[in-house]
């Protein structure tokens, strides 16, 4: 609780205490902590002087915000229309099989989270996968094990 308050304090101070900054505040906290904790929601509600229920409603409405901690490496499989047509579902399945988790879940070691995202805007390279800041274009299911291996190797460095 103490630690949460300290790290959140710096985020709070970058915005005036007005309700309009609620979403922006939560986004910054998400960026910093990779999730929105119950404590964080309480602190934000106090700072903006809005009911906790309003913070909760915003925190649960937007997909950019997560109430559970995500893995260190988030695998974003683009499922925009172009990627879908060019086989995104097959790519999702391949990642699920490789990591033993379902789409939306995080591996027990908190290393990977699989997510599908609506459109990464790189349709010419469909199907596209983004892991951290790296974009993998023209993906195929057979490349999945090798890519996971590569991320694991860079993580242990």
């Amino acid at each position: 609780m103490k630690r949460t308050q300290n790290t959140i304090q710096s985020v709070l101070e970058s915005y005036p205490p007005e309700p309009r900054y609620l979403l922006a505040l939560l986004q910054d906290i998400q960026e910093q902590d990779h999730y929105i904790s119950v404590e964080a929601m309480q602190v934000v509600a106090g700072y903006l002087d809005v009911p906790e229920s309003r913070v909760y409603s915003v925190a649960t409405f937007y997909t950019a915000l997560s109430l559970v901690p995500l893995g260190r490496h988030v695998i974003k499989v683009c499922s925009g229309t172009a990627c879908h047509l060019r086989g995104a579902p097959v790519i999702v399945e391949a990642f699920e099989k490789e990591l033993g988790i379902k789409n939306g879940e995080t591996t027990p070691d908190r290393m990977f989270t699989i997510q599908t995202v609506n459109c990464l805007g790189a349709c010419a390279m469909a199907p596209v996968v983004m892991i951290d800041d790296e974009v993998y274009g023209k993906m195929t299911a057979v490349r999945v094990p090798e890519i996971i291996e590569g991320v694991r190797a860079s993580d242990s460095e």
Partner: peptide
């Protein structure tokens, strides 16, 4: 934005700017 498709709708977008769902 917060990653919600519906916010492309004008009134939803305005609610979002106001710090609401």
């Amino acid at each position: 934005g917060g990653g919600a498709f519906v916010c492309g709708e004008s009134t939803a977008l305005m609610n979002s700017i106001e710090g609401l769902a």
